[in-house]
Design a protein around this nucleic acid. Structure first.
Lengths: 110, 110
DNA sequence: ACAATAGTCAACCATCTGGTTAAGTAAACA
DNA sequence: TGTTTACTTAACCAGATGGTTGACTATTGT
């Protein structure tokens, strides 16, 4: 099994563990956005919103670029590749499990 | 974009955000294990270890079965499917981004 | 019966997290 | 110049997290 750089996995997975942050990422797939244009599941103060954006930026999942007084946020989903790769290593396991289940059910039928 | 059941994504991603827990999952892909047989990156007390196993169980990623005084832990990676599916939705984005980068670099060459 | 083993529970602790309000900075506009 | 806008920073707060130690239960082995 591959040796995934754990600090990055830590920060990426924990960034993804919050629904507000997943909503931000979802919105950013539709295009860039300023911070105050970001929509969150729960109504939230601007500093609260900023903290989430900071977490996403720390995890390398969003990039900010300041133009005048407004910040353009864009998705930088590349670190998700490692997370996806990590999870992918488990796919074999669960597929094999589901196959076993399928076999079992098939035998039940006979 | 699909509407993923967020509570499960919350608990799965936050369970994965800890290196100790990822190590436990990795070990369980090699076969079942009792709790005290689980090896962790950092030396840890048994109750500490138990807390991690509890988190993994809550997220639906491991199953326990008590046989006598020993608990058999096994991987139940099925909830990872949702997490993988969620991340997968972003693959299009980053692939397209890398393609854009590739295009850009190709144009630079000309 | 006794002792060792495997796990659990409870209490405690420090730190992190996710939110707030209040105040500050810097750009855009009238 | 003065005011609004967009963001930032700091201080604070409650609750979650990740770890500990100590005491307890229940099974297994002698």
């Amino acid at each position: 099994m591959v040796n995934y750089s754990t600090p990055q996995l830590d920060s990426v997975f924990s960034a993804l563990a919050d629904p507000t942050r997943r909503a931000i990422l979802a919105q950013l797939t539709q295009g860039e956005s300023s911070i105050s244009e970001l929509e969150t599941p729960q109504k939230m103060s601007l500093p609260g919103l900023m903290k989430h954006v900071n977490v996403l930026e720390q995890a390398g999942l969003v990039e900010r670029e300041k133009k005048g007084r407004v910040v353009r946020c864009r998705l930088a989903a590349e670190p998700l590749k490692n997370a996806a790769g990590w999870i992918e290593d488990y796919r074999r396991f669960w597929e094999q499990n589901l196959d076993s289940l399928a076999d079992y059910l098939a035998r039940q039928k006979d």
